[in-house]
Design a protein around this nucleic acid. Structure first.
Lengths: 168, 168
DNA sequence: GTCGCTGCAAAGTCTTTGCAGAGAG
DNA sequence: CTCTCTGCAAAGACTTTGCAGCGAC
């Protein structure tokens, strides 16, 4: 099992621990191509949303994403509705994936990274990512054994994270 | 890894394949004891909700649970608010567990069966349950390694089930 | 220019809450 | 009797949609 590294938050420069497998420019180009293919338009709002997702290590709710954008680009005055609309578009295009964890609402993350699973703190809501080859292998075998043609899978472990255990 | 059997839908009589580890009467008694312990009252609505959950193999939404109850006990005129309140109570007491699948809303199932994971057919929506000890072990180890106090976990494998593959 | 996109506000979902009367203990 | 529960309806939280003007192409 290995923990995903942290990526450099300040720029697109990769670090030794960078887990993003896609450069921002490539991602952006893919997105533009997708838009063109579907006769959709490339707008500044759409770019800002993609960029903000890319530059965040967090799993963002539509609301927190909107807040980040408002803070960084106050002049754009981006509406929450546009954030929702763009997230749906990105999810449909499999550029982002969503997680519905415990309570209510979804969180989104870029899907362009490595596949990974999630450890979710039920106290503070923080999400830690990990990948475990043994589990990945096992999942394939189980699907095979049941005659199931596996397309995707997701795993979540819920509990109390280190920090919250200390606080209690 | 082993597949969970199917239970008899018509009565509380167990079959060879029954996977419920708890008899309804025992479940009911536990629930009554829990209520008493917390100075809560045992009402007909609460019983009907528990019973309906017990007698359903489906993963139920609050709404579908409410519909089932309305259909079976129209005279009770159970309110949806009571269903929500009781589900929260049951979840808090770890008698039921909730799943947040894809879209929106939660689905509930009795937690009194064995723990299990889910294979979900993206074509017909059917859900197959399974348990794999290797994965269970691994999950514990991962949580431990990350200083995480594990409370629960869930795993879903998405794909096309045998039947749907044949149809295609 | 055209036609899709955006912000806004209104409308939809799903869930929770306040309240007054009903009912369990 | 007391104090919790319940159904109802209203309120909340989150998300989607209609619309008129804006902006990408």
């Amino acid at each position: 099992m290995y923990l995903m590294g942290q990526r450099d938050n300040m720029s697109n420069i990769t670090t030794d621990f960078n887990y993003k497998t896609v450069e921002y420019n490539q991602l952006l180009n893919d997105f533009k191509a997708l838009l063109k293919k579907n006769n959709l338009k490339f707008t500044i709002q759409r770019e800002v949303i993609l960029e903000t997702l890319y530059n965040s290590d967090e799993h963002l709710t539509p609301e927190s994403l909107h807040n980040l954008i408002q803070a960084k680009f106050p002049n754009l005055n981006t509406g929450i509705a546009t954030v929702y609309r763009t997230l749906s578009l990105l999810e449909e295009s499999e550029i982002v994936t969503s997680l519905s964890f415990g309570a209510q609402g979804k969180k989104y993350e870029l899907g362009a990274k490595h596949h990974h699973d999630h450890l979710i703190c039920t106290s503070c809501g923080s999400i830690t990512e990990f990948v475990d080859e043994q589990i990945e292998d096992r999942q394939k075998k189980i699907a095979d054994a049941l005659g199931f043609k596996m397309q995707d899978h997701s795993m979540q472990i819920y509990g109390i994270c280190k920090n919250c255990q200390i606080k209690e």
